[in-house]
Design a protein around this nucleic acid. Structure first.
Length: 387
DNA sequence: CTCGTCACGGTTGAT
DNA sequence: ACATCAACCGTGACG
């Protein structure tokens, strides 16, 4: 049972409320630990990063859970993912899996079948691989091939079927490209295109609707000395809760593509991440890993490869410690947006096994500096003493 | 007490 | 424009 928290903007939400229409509402729920979360949506990158950082510091998951007020199951999941992929980013939400039975594949199968009516499905599969029509990642299963033969090709004695086939957009038909992050040439959707503006919320360079605040009193502030971090998250909030709520996670998503980098970080992103300020450099080190970046969020998190995968990104984890800029008064001002900064995968190889090679992944290979990123963790002013 | 796992209710985005 | 589907999410409970 969750305590549903409805935040009405326009009330005493603070300055942030100003941008929202009086009627605008944002919502969240409070878990058993008092932490705020949005059902169905990923935790803010800043918190995800925090989890990883604390784990790197040797803090036990159960303690991290309590300190950050995130369920231990979630902590476990995020750490497991990080260990496996090197990424702190959530997977891609929504969207559909890329189709393997593209017109080109069907066409080839048909040709194989016509050439050899007695060919077995597994033989077709092998040929698709051998001929380079498919790779191991998108080759249809034997059962799929059988289905294709049965449903789409049917009786080959009827040549008509051939002609009826749609023009092969062949390779172009492969949906994969648009599915993987690397597919975003330049920028994903214009910043704010989808999120910011809907409500008329001023979108300033990726500053999506970050003006909304989390009224919730349940903040992790004071925890680990990352008060600023949490405060901004919980208090300044979520605008994250734009109707789309993507901001919550998307922290700085929109800004991602921005070529403007500061210390290797996307400046725009930084700006946008008002909500969940976090240690930029550090964060960035964990982010890139989202190798198998999912179709959707990729755009969000990854943006143009050049954006954060940039080989030129001279990461200086240490330099951008949590206390970088702004932290103003003791408060560490971290920018979740920084997450977008280019970094390296912890286990690049693994990703390859998991997902089809993508440009993004490839680029990641160039970035083997990740471990160094962890060094940034040490730069954090963490106070492990939770109580 | 800790932690891995999973059902659940939820969101998202491609089709 | 809407519905469907399949991906993901974090929580909470169980073992």
């Amino acid at each position: 049972m969750y305590l549903c928290v409805i935040f009405e903007h326009g009330g005493d939400c603070g300055a942030l409320c100003g941008v929202l229409p009086p009627t605008e509402q944002t919502y969240g729920e409070v878990n058993q630990l008092g932490g705020v979360f949005v059902n169905g949506r990923p935790l803010p990158n800043a918190i995800r990063l925090r989890i990883v950082e604390l784990a790197q510091l040797g803090i036990r998951p159960c303690d991290i859970s309590r300190q950050l007020r995130v369920s231990h199951g979630c902590v476990s999941k995020i750490l497991a993912r990080y260990n496996e992929t090197g990424s702190i980013l959530p997977g891609a939400i929504g969207g559909s899996k890329p189709r393997v039975t593209t017109p080109n594949v069907v066409k080839n199968i048909r040709e194989y079948k016509q050439a050899d009516p007695g060919i077995f499905a597994w033989e077709i599969r092998d040929r698709l691989l051998a001929d380079g029509v498919c790779d191991k990642y998108n080759v249809p299963s034997v059962s799929s091939i059988s289905r294709i033969l049965r449903n789409k090709i049917g009786n080959l004695s009827q040549p008509a079927a051939h002609d009826s086939s749609k023009p092969t957009h062949a390779q172009a038909a492969l949906p994969y490209n648009h599915i993987y992050p690397y597919s975003y040439p330049n920028a994903m959707s214009p910043p704010g295109a989808k999120m910011g503006s809907p409500h008329g919320v001023p979108v300033t360079g990726g500053h999506v609707s970050i003006s909304r605040a989390w009224p919730s009193p349940h903040t992790v502030s004071n925890i680990l000395g990352i008060r600023a971090f949490m405060d901004s998250t919980a208090i300044a909030g979520p605008d994250g809760y734009t109707p789309k709520m993507e901001d919550w996670t998307g922290v700085g998503r929109t800004a991602f593509p921005s070529p403007h980098c500061v210390n290797g970080m996307d400046k725009t992103a930084i700006d946008s991440d008002v909500k969940y300020p976090q240690p930029s450099s550090t964060l960035s080190s964990y982010v890139p890993a989202c190798a198998y970046s999912p179709p959707n969020q990729y755009g969000v998190y990854s943006g143009p490869p050049g954006g954060y995968m940039s080989p030129a990104h001279h990461w200086q984890p240490q330099s951008a410690s949590l206390s970088h800029a702004g932290g103003g008064g003791g408060g560490v001002t971290m920018h979740a947006a920084e997450i977008h900064a280019p970094m390296v995968f912890k286990h690049p190889a693994r990703d390859e096994d998991r997902k089809p090679p993508s440009p993004l992944v490839k680029q990641q290979h160039h970035q083997q500096q990740q471990h160094e990123a962890l060094g940034g963790v040490h730069g954090l002013a963490l106070s492990t003493s939770s109580s």
